[in-house]
């Protein structure tokens, strides 16, 4: 009987990683990143990676770990401003970079998972993003053609999941995870809580299990906060 559950990140990665592969990694900033799988990929020593991810972690955490270990050759991202090592590697020519507008990146991945090879968008028309790409007029407006994105492997993080691979994300930790789950030739999901089949609300599943090949409960969720911002508590009777 087919079995999607794995004991660990290492077990989930078995037989699906190889040098020179393309990996999609979910998350926005450090929010909703598959931190267990990233650590296991670092430990696997796989190299020459192309990584598709909105950001590239920070120094010492998330995808920053793979950068430090010299495992990434190329990034496809929309914003990489939080990572000093990234800057050094990029400026010294050791790292290739392809910037995509964030919405274009999300839609390229969605299209990749849905079998749509390309689409037209207004985003980036008249900018460097549109250079060398086909443009077309629709109803008097110019649009640029963007190609779909898929990957050898998609790694995603969800809050809850079951043995079928059905996933539920929490708050803004959803971000790129649902599209990436659909666009990997193999998709691995790490969850904070692995629920018994039948216990998740079937109307509230964000990613149906068809997209998920392997699932496991992560061993450690550090869930680092990038910018801790708070407001002072005003005591009763005190004026604001």
């Amino acid at each position: 009987m087919a079995q999607k559950t794995c004991a660990s990140a290492e077990a989930a990665l078995e037989g699906v990683i190889f040098d020179g592969m393309t990996i999609m990694s979910g998350g926005f900033g450090l929010c909703g990143i598959p931190e267990n799988l990233i650590r296991a990929i670092r430990d696997s020593g796989v190299r020459g990676l192309t990584v598709i991810s909105n950001n590239c972690g920070v120094d010492g955490f998330g995808l920053g770990l793979l950068l430090e270990a010299g495992q990434i050759d190329k990034m496809v991202s929309s914003y990489v401003g939080e990572n000093k090592l990234f800057e050094q590697l990029y400026l010294s020519g050791k790292l290739q970079l392809e910037f995509n507008p964030q919405g274009t990146l999300a839609e390229r991945i969605r299209a990749g998972g849905a079998g749509i090879p390309a689409f037209f968008t207004k985003t980036g028309v008249g900018t460097v993003v549109a250079e060398g790409k086909e443009t077309r007029e629709f109803d008097g407006e110019t649009y640029v053609m963007e190609r779909a994105l898929t990957a050898d492997l998609a790694i995603v993080k969800a809050w809850k999941g079951d043995r079928e691979g059905n996933l539920v994300y929490r708050r803004t930790a959803r971000n790129f995870n649902p599209m990436m789950a659909t666009a990997g030739r193999t998709t691995l999901a790490e969850v904070e809580h692995l629920a018994e089949t039948g216990t998740l609300d079937k109307d509230a599943i964000h990613t149906p299990g068809i997209y998920v090949d392997r699932i496991f409960q992560g061993a450690v969720f550090e869930k680092r906060i990038e910018q801790l911002t708070t407001r002072p508590r005003v005591a009763a009777g005190e004026s604001v």
Binding site: F28, C31, E82, A173, K223, I225, Q227, L228, T229, P232
Partner: peptide, 17 residues
């Protein structure tokens, strides 16, 4: 959020809680 109530799963586009 109030101090001590920040949720790592709840941030804005500037990555602030």
């Amino acid at each position: 959020p109030f101090e001590g109530e920040a949720d790592p799963d709840l941030i804005n586009a500037g990555k602030q809680t």
